[in-house]
Simulated scan of single mutants.
Amino acid sequence: MENEVSTNKQDIRQRLPHRTLSESTGDNGTKSSYLRSKSNPLKTESVDENGDDLIDTVLEVPTKCVEQAKEVGKRVVQYVVDHSHLPQWLLDNEFLISGHRPPMPSFKECFASIFRLHTETVNIWTHLLGTLFFIIITIYYISRPSSEVHIEKKLTFSAFFLGAILCLLFSTLYHTLSCHSPKISKIFNKLDYCGISILIVSSFIPWLYYGFYCEFGTKVAYLLITTLLGTGCIIVSMWDKFAAPEYRTCRALLFIAFGLFGFIPTCHYVLLFGFKHAFTTGAAQWLVVMAVLYISGASLYAARIPERLAPGYFDIWFQSHQIFHVFVVAAACVHYYGLCVLSLHQSSIGDCRKRIIPPFTSVFNSMFQ
């Protein structure tokens, strides 16, 4: 007992982490003698109980702070590992040095990691919040009476909403469960890429429907081509090697090329109705903004910028994949706004049977006036 008191006299910091343990074992005599000896070595037995209580109260605050700091450290620091400690199937971005989740073969642990800080935290939350946003918008549209939103508009917009929800949801699940096991990671990685194709196809559906409202044959042709291209991308996404890190650039280029297909019907629309009409009533400007966001985000993702420029500085915040996720959600919101503008075009068309398309020469001339 005397040895313990002398040890505590040497350094009070060594006693703080063991304070709770001492209290639980009922070693009150040692505590009192220690506190009295530190306050007055010459009169260890003459200090009254009020003085002991005051010192105990003073030391209680730093003790609790130390314990809470340790708990936070366990959740943030000890929870993650460096890139060099990851197994082969979890290796993806070598420019993210630290902050990675270790393999966790438990769905409960994977979902609990949503609320912890690591390299995938922002990736999860950006698309999780985007999923919730489009679910709310979908419920709002469907619940509105038919006198305000026609069933036709509900169906066309719901196609886009469904594609956005599936894309963002698959992405959220993949980034949450990617550390579970090689099998689970591979399954949800494929779903993630399939979700991108679904979003692109579903984005075309309402735009083609309203843009070529009275051109039934043209509309069906573009929809069929888009569906075939989307199906091809999904088939490629099922290929195991497609998810390998060395195919990162190929993945980005594939989806960029698929998205750029939208410029063909856009140019067709401009030739059909004129440049001015396309960028006012036709909301083509919002399609351009959407394309810029998608292409910019995918390009940063493929080039791994900015973490390539400063490895280790963007492990948790502002890495390329996070920026890509933000751009995807922003592009989907921009596209939704553009569809709202374009859908107003339907009311100005009237009866398609009475509509006369201006001759190509007059449209061509109006583009340069």
Rank of each mutant, 00 (worst) to 15 (best):
V5L: 15
I12W: 14
R15F: 13
G26H: 03
N28L: 13
K31M: 10
S32H: 04
S32A: 10
S32R: 13
S37Y: 07
S39I: 15
K43A: 14
K43P: 01
D48E: 11
N50F: 09
I55Y: 10
A69I: 14
A69F: 12
G73Q: 09
R75F: 06
R75P: 00
Y79G: 00
L91T: 03
F95P: 06
P102K: 15
P105M: 07
K108C: 06
F111L: 11
F111W: 11
G130V: 09
F134C: 03
I136E: 09
T138L: 07
K154P: 02
L155Q: 03
F157R: 04
F160K: 00
Y174T: 10
H180L: 08
K186V: 05
S197T: 08
L199I: 07
S202G: 13
F204N: 01
I205W: 05
G211S: 13
G211C: 08
G217F: 11
K219F: 02
K219Y: 01
G232R: 08
C233S: 14
I234N: 08
D240N: 14
F242M: 11
A244C: 08
E246T: 12
T249F: 13
T249Q: 14
A252T: 12
L253K: 09
G259K: 02
L260V: 02
I264Q: 08
T266D: 08
T266S: 14
C267F: 15
H268S: 15
Y269A: 10
L271M: 13
W286G: 14
W286C: 05
G297S: 11
G297E: 09
I305M: 12
I323Q: 03
Y336V: 00
G338V: 00
L344N: 13
H345K: 12
D351I: 06
